[in-house]
Design a binder for these strands. Sequence first.
DNA 1: AATCAAAATTTGTGATCACAAATCTGAGCT
DNA 2: AGCTCAGATTTGTGATCACAAATTTTGATT
Lengths: 248, 248
Amino acid sequence: MGTKAPTDTSLRTQVYDSLRDALTAGQFAPGQKLSFRYIASTLGVSLTPVREAIRRLVAEGALEMRPGRSVRVPLMTKAKILELRDIRLALEGLATEKAAAVATRDEVARLRRIAAELVAVRSRGDSPADRLKIREFHFALYGIARQPILLRAIEGLWLQTGPYMNLLYPDYVASPLGPERRLRIVAALQAHDAAAARRELEGDIYDALSYVAGLADAAGNIAPAQPLQAKRRRGRSSLPPSGALAFP
Amino acid sequence: MGTKAPTDTSLRTQVYDSLRDALTAGQFAPGQKLSFRYIASTLGVSLTPVREAIRRLVAEGALEMRPGRSVRVPLMTKAKILELRDIRLALEGLATEKAAAVATRDEVARLRRIAAELVAVRSRGDSPADRLKIREFHFALYGIARQPILLRAIEGLWLQTGPYMNLLYPDYVASPLGPERRLRIVAALQAHDAAAARRELEGDIYDALSYVAGLADAAGNIAPAQPLQAKRRRGRSSLPPSGALAFP
DNA sequence: AATCAAAATTTGTGATCACAAATCTGAGCT
DNA sequence: AGCTCAGATTTGTGATCACAAATTTTGATT
């Protein structure tokens, strides 16, 4: 286990996390203007940390500034989804190639374990846990590449596509193609076959994002999906409890 | 000509521009801590806009937060330069491919004109103007692709590599390879030959960044170059006057 | 000289205030 | 009803203040 860096406890970061989670879950409608004072009072903080958190989200492309000094949730269009698809193909494909070149046995074993857990979660119909496991698998894969700048860039892309990946449920993920591809990615990493690993990974992203782009209406706009619910869950939700600050 | 969007006149943005220009020019040493109050008093503003500008630069990777709540200029290593090289190859290669597919005659003509101006500037030994023209050429090229998210991502990469591109002067740019490659890129765009355009563009970036990486010392560290000076200039500097806020 | 703890100083963070720009509201008019 | 514009309200911006965390300085001690 790695030593845990001292967590950033600043209010700024807590507000950032709250907004990021709410955006990723699709709790804000595209085009919706965000009021600084509303966010501040909802989260029980002053304007200062809210401003800095929003500034960061704007820099990351998760929010956008409008001419009159207001901030809103970006509208998503089919063209933007396809653009993000191609950027993700380029960067996540690159990370996968690099990962295949240097993956250790332990890292391959960990990836295989996450892929198995994902199959188990999916068989239970627990979509929220499914999404988390998919994220865990991908970032475990990209982390193997040991390229911190690349990893940060990919995180930014996931932040922008996040609200729309719920649209893959439940229809798209019913295909057995995903699990098969993940196993082939793991096998390619084990064999240090960078080209094969990239090919499989790219197929996965290409199909998923193309599917989402296909959901755009005639005007090219896509509405983000609502937060997911587990099909049948006992006890607590599979989603980890969020921090102290959250939106209703 | 396109209609000009109303310029953002907020102090936050002015401070951001000042810091970005100073960083790009290599005016801050790697590892140097930046004091909010020093910046604020130097630029004659309060802490508030300084904080937001720094927050944005941190989000873009141009500055980094350190454990104790301080902000510093990132150290640059050979490994980071090579990582940035490969990311730039992926994204700028992608943008070039897309540009080649859709370039109009006017756009190709504009690119060719910029390439010619660059040759003229270089023959005068005006390195600062040279750098500006190179940037103009590349972003004119990437702009043709009409992919705004991709363009923003590339701007972020240039911000991170910026302070080190001065190291290409005067030795590296003496090679006639650069001008030749740019002409071949323009020709490929004219022929809508995406593969050829990408190949030439990638060769340009690969050689330049590999050269910079080769300047790293035994520990892998690279110091950014000092601001450039024109070889022989008459009258004013070729650098456009910066805004009201600037560092000494 | 080298070491180290206490004191002094500097620094980033968060809250609050003042203000102008943006937005909303509604009365009056066509 | 639809439109316009003045007044009221809300909103983001920038400055300032208080405070605790981090850093530097100081001075006693070995």
